[in-house]
Design a protein around this nucleic acid. Structure first.
Lengths: 250, 250
DNA sequence: AGAAATTGGATTTTCGAAAATCTTGACAAG
DNA sequence: CTTGTCAAGATTTTCGAAAATCCAATTTCT
């Protein structure tokens, strides 16, 4: 799935390192799948990642496995301890708050940059990203229980928020955005396991986009902040349910 | 070198993953050394990192080497391309500007957080970090050419800036700080190869610290911003010399 | 001659087994 | 009863060689 843009983009910066799309080595493929499995709770937080089990699961030897684990560990989704192996990063509500607030700050900062420096290509990308998000939202609303549609919407949601930031032209800022978004998505999905699905407020997304395209920095960032505050509040309200559910099962 | 603080600190967050201090596996040790060798230009930007050569250099097999390379690649100090190997991340002046400005923003943000939330332990750490920086600065001024003293000062300098941020209590923000600082230090040392040594302005550091300890957020962040602007200006003036030097040799 | 296919050597990637380390539980000593 | 030591099994880490891929130069075909 290549970007529709044809520009050469920048040739430097982070994230170019391990080819993110379509890795052509076992290590890269396992790393990709591992990320997904952790974010989507196919592997549970705190779970030990033993080589013989993972070896069977992904059908690869230990060499590519270790390399994959180190990649994902550097991202903070797994924790490595010398001579004791790897563990899926545990869930900590404090960490979620940290990730959440830092992400809000960085994304606001990036959006300001986009509005100031974003070129026409950015506007087009943003519009198309919103369009796809909207379509996915409609699909989800038809069948709220379909896991695939839900995942589809999650992907479009990430791409929309990424599109907001993309115009800032700072590869490092976008790299950090991605890292934080991976973390955040894992936490969000964690809550979903215990709570009814929250209905997406695509109207908020549209308002943010319009303000951004109007180059109204203050209004756009204010709306984005409000968007985050609302999400945070909603998440907090799920917190109790989760804690009850966790203490009941474990 | 453990921190002087005895508090348990947080048990979550990034950076805890690959044990940063005193790794007890070959992979970890090589990763540590590789980072240093790249930051300190013992390995040159753009240089190919071939396994048989690195194998001799660090006296380890390919397995720990690959694992180390993936760790450092995730940090952006080396670039990996499938089936073509690893390369020391090239130098790009554009990237340096990106890293520099983002680092300035994040550090200012972190300092604000420290001033608002920093506890007494933070104040003590900051004071002691400044004290060590000052001592190192005096040592350097005695013998400007001693590479070890220069490196010592660099380490104290990093620890001082880290101490400024530490009180904010956001592991993820501190993690990003570290990543950006590694990048920045490499670029700074790159310029040092071509230019006379700049004398450190520890008076600026002291002023920033005083304002921070006085919990004067506006003054502290203003001073910090001025500090960065001055550094940026100084760096820019070196840029021409570097470009001349590079075009002469390459 | 120019383009496409091919071959050989260099390099990366992966595997399977050996070496090193950790964990557990039994046993002995204080 | 607690503490410390030691072996056995389990697991991680590392090595050395096999397999796969890439690169450049040569050959082959048009």
């Amino acid at each position: 799935m290549k970007s529709t843009s044809k520009g050469p983009s920048v040739q430097w910066g982070p994230g170019i390192s391990p080819s993110r799309d379509e890795p052509r080595t076992l290590a890269g493929q396992v790393a990709r799948q591992l990320r997904l499995d952790i974010i989507r709770h196919k592997l549970e937080p705190g779970e030990r990642l033993q080589f013989d089990k993972l070896s069977k699961r992904y059908e690869v030897g230990v060499s590519p496995l270790r390399e994959a684990l180190f990649q994902v560990a550097a991202q903070g989704l797994v924790v490595a301890e010398d001579h004791k192996g790897f563990v899926v990063a545990p869930i900590h509500l404090d960490e979620m708050m940290d990730v959440s607030s830092l992400r809000a700050h960085l994304e606001t900062y990036a959006l300001s940059g986009s509005i100031r420096d974003g070129r026409e290509e950015w506007e087009v990308d943003l519009l198309s990203a919103f369009h796809r998000l909207k379509r996915a939202g409609i699909a989800v609303s038809v069948d709220q229980e379909d896991e695939n549609l839900r995942t589809e919407w999650e992907d479009r949601h990430r791409e929309f928020h990424f599109a907001l930031c993309k115009g800032c032209g700072s590869p490092w800022l976008l790299h950090f955005f991605n890292e934080l978004y991976d973390q955040m998505e894992r936490y969000r999905r964690y809550f979903w396991k215990y709570a009814e699905r929250a209905v997406a407020a695509d109207s908020e997304h549209e308002a943010i986009m319009r303000a951004a395209l109007d180059r109204d920095e203050k209004r756009a960032t204010d709306l984005l902040q409000a968007h985050f505050r609302r999400q945070a509040k909603l998440t907090l309200s799920l917190r109790n349910k989760v804690q009850r559910a966790v203490s009941a099962t474990g």
